[in-house]
Simulated assay, not measured.
Amino acid sequence: MNALPQEATRVTPEEYLELERTSEVKYEYFDGEVFAMVGASLNHNRINRNMIQKIGIQLEGSPCEALSSDMRVKIEALEKYTYPDIAMVCGDVNLEKKKGLDTLLNPIVIIEILSKSTEAYDRGTKFQHYQLIPSLQEYILVSQHDCRIEKYVREAEGKWIYSLYGEMGQSMTIASIGCELLLSDIYYRVEFE
């Protein structure tokens, strides 16, 4: 999804959560600003569906689960709330429960499907912010415009190792949850421009 800044005055995290509780629109929050989430393209939706389905099948019977873009994630170090396209968690699910809302605190994997309007943000500032989540082990960026997936894996020393996948015949392993995905499955029915 794409975020568009709102022309509102600065708000507190509590005011943001109250807005989230009463609004039909999803918002992200950072540093007193709220950003409305706008609709996604057909390619974006197909990639999201394909990944959730394939990951879900592989996670049956495991302590891990994949959560869709409706699961809000909090970066506690920044008091930032965001909606990744897919968040995965294993074992105990740690939630912040405020204003009757659930917010995930301990994702292990975050996947963002890139759009032209958010790609630079997803690669830069947003990734820097996600790195502040202690539980996060893998960050995956999926292009919706061509066959290209970039994966970052956190090493024990806090270093991030980069891998690139760019051919339909390749498979990508998400080691922290024990899944392997074929790029041809991720991009099933996706039409590149």
Rank of each mutant, 00 (worst) to 15 (best):
N2K: 09
P5F: 06
E7Q: 13
T9L: 12
R10D: 10
V11Y: 09
P13T: 08
E14Y: 02
E24N: 14
E24Y: 08
K26C: 10
D31K: 10
D31C: 07
G39D: 13
S41I: 07
S41M: 11
L42W: 13
H44D: 06
R49F: 14
N50I: 07
I52A: 03
I52T: 04
K54F: 09
K54S: 06
K54P: 01
G56V: 05
E60W: 12
G61N: 12
E65F: 04
S69Q: 06
E76A: 11
E76I: 01
L78F: 14
K80V: 08
Y81Q: 07
T82A: 14
P84Y: 09
I86T: 01
A87R: 01
V89T: 12
V93I: 15
N94A: 10
E96A: 13
K98G: 00
K98H: 07
D102W: 07
D102H: 09
D102M: 08
L104Q: 08
I108V: 12
V109T: 03
T118P: 00
E119C: 01
D122Q: 02
G124H: 11
K126A: 01
K126V: 06
H129P: 02
Y130W: 05
Q131S: 12
L132E: 13
L132S: 07
I133T: 03
P134G: 05
H145Q: 13
C147V: 15
E150M: 07
Y152W: 13
V153C: 04
R154A: 02
E155G: 09
G166S: 15
G166K: 10
G169I: 08
Q170N: 03
T173M: 00
T173P: 00
I174E: 05
S184C: 05
Y187D: 03
R189T: 10
R189C: 04
V190H: 07
F192K: 04
F192S: 05
